Amino acid sequence: MPAGKKVILVTGASSGFGRLTAQTLARSGHRVVAGMRATQTRNAAAAHELDELGSIENLTLSAVELDVQSQSSADEAIAVILERHGRLDVVVHNAGHMVLGPAEAFTPEQLAAVYDINVVGTQRVNRAALPTLRGQGAGLLVWVGSSSTRGGHPPFLAPYFAAKAAMDALAESYAAELIRFGIGTTIVVPGAFTSGTNHFAHAGHPQDTTTEAAYDGLYGEIRALIDRRLPALVPPDANVQSVADEIARVVDLPDDSRPFRTHIDPSRDGSEVVSVVADRIRAEFYRRLGVEGLLPSNAAL
């Protein structure tokens, strides 16, 4: 493998950020494995298109069956990657699922399912991948977060925002626990891109339709306007490719130069300012604990 080129797993790579990231990393010369569910059925076309792109452009790009809601699937995916490429250097945690509707109208089981995909799914992949990265004494975890964890929280997206906030907290703790193994962390924070992904098109909705309907009288107009106002926050020249480009830039940086957190926020919702303050507070907290060496050197930037 050429110097500086890595073997990379991108989860949730059938569409949106994940697919763009897989393609962009492969075009940068990396060996990329695009993880996705249902490669033989629902996502068969997506898997075939990636394989075809690899052949046409002479890229090392392939798909692997990966359902982040199954530990056995995560274990098998990592085994396949190691068989194909002999190593694994980077995991891009991108798989996720959005839901729309009044928070009260989601059943507890639905809330748990959103958490399972967005948070527990990363844990399954980590448990499958980290033994290899720790054994190598090197690696990188890239977590694709959301500016909602740092900026405003529009209504009617609560389960998704709550799960993304939990994933962000998990990523921060993992960063400190993995740094001495030579495994770096970068949290990539996209803003409110409302086109170019399937987040909204594939979003889930509340099962409790009776409770959902109870909100229509007082909030029906607001709910309708949210769908219009969120896209209005995004400049017309915003391009989801910028998220993939930033992930590729981070991967290509030297280990000691990668940002702990990086924002791609066309709407400028203020989340980057909040992150700077939060990271400085965290750095001071670690210093007072006497364990500042567990924090990446650039985490307080």
Rank of each mutant, 00 (worst) to 15 (best):
P231C: 02
R87V: 04
D237S: 14
R19P: 00
G18C: 04
R223H: 01
A158W: 01
F156E: 09
S267M: 05
T194I: 00
V250E: 05
N298Y: 07
R134I: 12
D116Q: 13
L141F: 12
A45V: 15
S257M: 14
A201F: 00
V274G: 00
R280L: 08
A138S: 15
R31Y: 07
V144K: 01
I183E: 04
R288I: 09
V92P: 01
L61V: 12
I179P: 02
A129P: 10
V273F: 05
G293N: 15
L294V: 01
R150K: 03
D116L: 00
G4L: 10
P102F: 09
I78S: 02
A103W: 07
A176P: 01
F161S: 04
R287Q: 14
L130D: 07
D216F: 11
S73P: 08
V243S: 03
G18S: 04
L100Y: 15
Q136E: 14
S72N: 07
L301A: 11
P155F: 05
Q136A: 15
V33H: 10
V7M: 06
P2Y: 01
V68I: 13
F200S: 08
L20A: 09
V188A: 01
G290K: 13
V234H: 01
V240I: 13
P159N: 08
E177H: 10
I183D: 02
T262K: 06
R249P: 05
V33T: 14
M1Y: 13
E212K: 09
L218P: 00
A128P: 08
A74Q: 03
R268K: 14
A278H: 13
T185D: 00
A224C: 00
G220V: 07
S275L: 08
G86D: 11
E65V: 01
P259G: 04
V234Y: 00
A26E: 11
V80I: 14
L88S: 10
P266M: 02
P231M: 03
A77E: 06
M36V: 08
F156Y: 15
L20E: 07
S70H: 10
E65K: 03
G270V: 12
D227E: 11
T211A: 01
V291L: 13
L170V: 14
F156Q: 05
E65H: 11
A162L: 11
T186P: 04
